[in-house]
Design a binder for these strands. Structure first.
Lengths: 223, 223
DNA sequence: CCTTGAGATAGTGGATACATATTGTGAAGA
DNA sequence: TCTTCACAATATGTATCCACTATCTCAAGG
């Protein structure tokens, strides 16, 4: 290990990966809006690199579903129709319970405690951004026991592609207090504490399904 | 339409796409084996292009899960462990029934007839390659009513990444005649003819699950 | 004999420059 | 006034050249 200590996990010091990370953060953070065009030259100039690594980065994000590439035309931030968004929730209804079941036995006490704190943060009502962050962290952390699995990647991807629409939906739902959501989170946390995979699946299905049904009542988000 | 008639659907006349298609066909056809290295220079030379479109193609295939890219190191045909392959089947058990349910009402009589012919081809016993082609065609065609959906892409990808291992497993199973498989295909075809989504889901779950359990008994495939 | 480190080698990552396709604009004609 | 065709501007796709990193080989030392 004297030479260069290359075993720094999967840290990619490659420019294309850095650009992809930067763009991903910007898209998820809302700096880019769905349907907005992304010009290779702009990104290249802003990041001080040439267009080649930008193209590689765009291809990565395309494969993640965050941007849509069209040959000889350009790249746009992926824009979902309400139908595609609903389909994503239908997939999540089937896969996330399985992922949670897989992850459940691997969640140590410390991890469960952290989930409890996150539920508390959401209930505290710190505003839109705080809820979004805690909600994402809560659910994805509950799958941490199964991280690095193929299913984990699929689910993670779906959380990313729907991030913008969840934000807009949550913005509307915050007005009603999100009481059902908070209750479901408490129930889910309890199932996790009890290490009960069957009940956990049921609650999670209900949670995702109810959100989908509520989302379908707000087609204006996809206008 | 005087200039160049560019409206040929999604036909990608881009070199990188052509190379990706070529490599994909080669990998799925078995010309490349899992774990085998793919050198950019070799592919570039063989296709008469430079390395840049080859890199783009490799990134596409990486995003499809067919090849594995490592920064500053190279590209290899993705090699699955038995655990990863089993996980793929677990995902398929949950998603394909849903996809079939979505596709079912869109399958017209002609499409169902074609499914029937494919079942006949499989039962006819034309050897490994013939069965592989008909089996893939049968299942993927049963989802054709939901083509272009996100779920369809996920499933398609999984059929691709496990293609090599299904071939090896089928090679072993052919000796036993595949009787259960043929019965399940007949049952599934009947459910489709009756337009019964609930029974179709049950049969398909059983079909995938039984295959997974049988696959788990042959770890030597992944040696 | 085994371990370790320096140098050579091969192969990927990136920058610059050029070719090509798409799209927007405007003028000419019906 | 609307349609249509041609041209120009813009952005993407590709080729060539260079730099960097990882791996392999081999020799020196314990």
């Amino acid at each position: 290990m004297t030479k260069s200590g290359h075993d720094n996990g999967h840290r990619e010091n490659v420019v294309s990966h850095r650009i992809a990370d930067s763009l991903r953060t910007a898209i998820l953070g809302g700096s880019y809006r769905p349907g907005e065009r992304i010009r290779q030259e702009d990104v290249a100039e802003r990041s001080g690199a040439s267009r080649i690594p930008v193209r590689e980065a765009l291809r990565m994000l395309d494969s993640e579903g965050l941007v849509t590439l069209v040959a000889n035309s350009g790249a746009w931030v992926t824009k979902l129709t309400i139908g595609e968004c609903v389909e994503t929730y239908l997939i999540r209804e089937r896969l996330e319970p399985l992922l949670l079941r897989t992850s459940l036995p691997c969640l140590v006490a410390a991890a469960v405690d952290r989930l409890g704190r996150l539920v508390g943060e959401m209930e505290a009502g710190g505003g839109l951004d705080a809820f979004m962050r805690a909600d994402r962290e809560f659910h994805l952390s509950s799958y941490a026991g199964a991280a690095s699995s193929e299913m984990w990647k699929i689910i993670h991807r779906m959380w990313n592609t729907t991030q913008h629409y969840r934000r807009e939906f949550t913005r509307l739902a915050l007005a009603d207090g999100l009481t059902a959501t908070h209750l479901e989170h408490r129930l889910l946390l309890d199932c996790i504490r009890r290490q009960d995979p069957d009940d956990a699946e049921r609650v999670l299905i209900m949670h995702i399904r109810r959100t989908r049904l509520a989302l379908e009542k707000h087609p204006e988000i996809f206008a």
